[in-house]
């Protein structure tokens, strides 16, 4: 416990805030702490979590990616045509195709960043515009409803009847769990993952130790792209349609949630747990406001205010207030 607090201070703080919020909501509204509500929260936010863990890897490696949500839209469109061309497909093929396409788009970012030494925010803002513009131009903004049936049909993994109605867990949640575990294993338990942390923390030190910078960029942005593609596939499964404008703008919301979860712009810090908690805090807040009967138009305002407040207080380190000032220089 002590180790957890020390290694993951922002995650611990976030967890406490989330628990307080949940307890409050449980008392204020009878609908919050029900299986139906909690499972639907999970179902509806699985896509955000998949994006978040992908973005986390890029942030850990010291980069930033603005283009992933648009990349997910591009992947959705290409997938529709690929599946039509191969005569349907199934979930296994779907995941491979979507993940592979997303990874390719991510690798484009990595190539530009590494080969031409352009910083990631410039590259991904460029590719954001390029991906989105080309997508809208080529598709003329058309909606696609003719998805293969395996793709648009909801897959129930578990269901249960409760007094409030049916509670269920759908496929995107399972995919989310797999993505979380896979990313956790990558960053925590493989040598590559530790190299990513080291590279984000001190690029020059990593270079001198013999870490391949190009490989790091490729893994970080490739992984982020792969997660974006998979998230795009899942998003279409939930909405049962492919809309070119649907995902644009989500990148900044996901970024806010990931950073709220303790990842640092500038690299070297961040965890899967934090990602999940960051997305959860935003989701639970919106859900709570909804259940309390607050106008849906006010949700975003409150969420924005909460993030602003969280940022404003995140630098108030509790540990620093109780321990005496260190003598001499740092």
């Amino acid at each position: 416990m002590r180790n957890f607090l020390r290694s993951y201070p922002s995650e611990a703080k976030l967890l406490v805030v989330l628990l307080i919020l949940c307890t409050l909501l449980a008392f204020l509204t009878p609908d919050f702490l029900t299986l139906v509500n909690l499972t639907s929260l999970l179902n509806n936010n699985s896509v955000n979590v998949i994006w978040a863990v992908g973005l986390l890897v890029v942030l850990i490696a010291g980069g930033i990616d603005i283009s992933f949500a648009v990349a997910a839209s591009v992947v959705q469109y290409i997938c529709v045509y690929v599946f039509a061309a191969i005569g349907g497909g199934n979930w296994a093929i779907g995941l491979i195709v979507a993940g592979g396409l997303g990874m390719s788009l991510g690798l484009i970012n990595a190539f530009l960043i590494h080969q031409f030494r352009i910083i990631s925010i410039v590259v991904t803002i460029s590719t954001f515009n390029a991906f989105f513009g080309l997508l809208m131009f080529i598709t003329s903004g058309r909606f696609l409803y003719n998805l293969p049936s395996w793709w648009s049909k909801a897959v129930y993994l578990w269901e249960k009847e409760t007094p409030q109605g049916w509670a269920d867990i759908r496929l995107p949640v399972a995919v989310m769990a797999v993505c979380m575990v896979a990313t956790w294993f990558l960053i925590r338990h493989t040598t590559t993952g530790r190299q990513l942390y080291a590279f984000g923390d001190n690029p020059e030190g990593a270079r001198r130790a013999g870490i391949s910078i190009g490989l790091m960029q490729a893994i970080a942005f490739g992984w982020c792209g792969m997660m974006a593609g998979i998230a795009g596939l899942m998003q279409a499964n939930i909405t049962k349609e492919v809309v070119p404008m649907a995902l644009i703008g989500r990148e900044l919301d996901v970024l806010a949630a990931v950073v709220l979860g303790g990842a640092r712009l500038g690299g070297g810090r961040g965890s899967i747990l934090g990602c999940f908690l960051g997305v959860a805090l935003v989701a639970v807040t919106q859900n709570g406001l909804n259940l309390l009967g607050v106008s849906p138009y006010a949700f975003k305002m409150v969420v924005g205010a909460i993030i602003l407040l969280a940022i404003s207080t995140s630098n108030l380190d509790l540990a620093r207030l109780v321990t005496p000032r260190r003598k001499g220089r740092e």
Partner: peptide, 26 residues
Amino acid sequence: VIAYIGAHPILVSLAMMIFLRGLGEF
């Protein structure tokens, strides 16, 4: 917030953006 708390400008302005968007829509 950026000057006196030292928070990252991307985050602060991102939060402000989300807040203003919500306020405007409200």
